[in-house]
């Protein structure tokens, strides 16, 4: 079974202060000075796939894992880490002209599908949402482009007794769905208690990963080229257009001014909180 897990490193927004939320004429926010991290859903997906690959009992059902990202050279750091913890391949799609891919899930899904079609994976796992655009659409669009079914808000993926099936648990409105499904399939990871965090490589794994190479493929090699002016892919395949154009960014309404309760200790603070603010508001 060949599994590809797609991820996009994102800036750790929690480390930006209020004044850092400003943008240039291209509506780009400078986040270059803060560290990048895995998006939480993709971190879950990456760990889930590792767990899944660890459960193969026979040589016939070995799982080959590929970590896939569309990024510049900075993405290699993340791919190296994934190679260290057990991914067989770390692949980075590099767009030659550095187009703005923040709000273009149509283009993103086009790039991923071009790679998946070439490599013949059985399963693609993505995160539900994340990154600058918070588009939440790449997984669905990838399923459309591949002509595969997909399941959203996945929380657990385990092997079924029959080798060609997986048992997939997902969240739906008002409940949980457990499905036994045939592949190929696109799975879109939501919150997962099974694999909230990615494992950390040990020293030996890190050293071994140093010898492994990240595979870099350009958009042109994938038979597609993303025009940085329009973000349209120039290709023989059905053209992915941008279905929306960014007009403006806004900060949320000016925050209320928070009144801080002073006080010598917790007792005084709690007393003030109760007397001055809670007493009148608490339901009688």
């Amino acid at each position: 079974m060949k599994i590809a897990v797609c991820f996009k490193p994102i800036a750790d927004y929690a480390r930006l202060s209020q004044k850092d939320w400003k943008w240039d004429e291209g509506h780009r926010v400078d986040t270059s000075f803060i560290r990048r991290i895995f998006n939480c859903f993709e971190e879950s997906a990456l760990e889930m796939a590792l767990t899944l690959s660890g459960t193969s009992e026979h040589a016939s059902d070995l799982i080959e894992l590929t970590a896939l990202t569309v990024d510049n050279q900075q993405g290699d750091l993340f791919l190296k880490q994934l190679l260290a913890v057990g991914y067989n391949y770390g692949v980075r799609i590099q767009c030659k002209k550095n187009p703005d891919l923040r709000f273009t899930p149509l283009v993103m899904s086009h790039l991923i599908s071009a790679y998946i079609k070439k490599q013949g994976h059985d399963l693609v796992i993505l995160g539900m949402q994340g990154g600058e655009g918070d588009n939440g659409q790449t997984g669905f669009l990838l399923a459309e482009r591949l002509g595969w079914p997909c399941i959203g808000e996945v929380s657990r993926i385990i092997r079924d007794e029959s080798h060609d099936c997986l048992k997939v648990t997902s969240r739906i409105d008002g409940g949980t769905l457990v499905q036994t499904v045939h592949l190929p399939m696109v799975l879109i990871m939501g919150h997962s208690l099974d694999s909230p965090y990615l494992r950390v490589p040990n020293l030996k794994q890190k050293l071994r990963a140093k010898k492994k190479q990240v595979i870099v493929i350009s958009d042109i090699e994938l038979g597609t080229y993303i025009d940085p002016q329009t973000n349209h892919a120039l290709t023989n395949a059905p053209t992915p257009e941008n279905d929306k154009t960014l007009m403006d960014l806004r900060k949320p309404q000016a925050s209320q001014s928070c009144v801080f309760i002073e006080g010598e200790n917790a007792m005084e603070q709690a007393q003030q909180l109760y007397d001055q603010y809670l007493k009148e508001r608490l339901p009688l």
Binding site: V29, R102, F103, E132, D134, D243, K244, T245, L249
Partner: peptide, 20 residues
Amino acid sequence: PKVKKPVYGNNLTAEFVLEY
């Protein structure tokens, strides 16, 4: 149509024009 949606981890709101 113009739409507004949260972006950048709900730290900003973006306005888009829908094309087609």
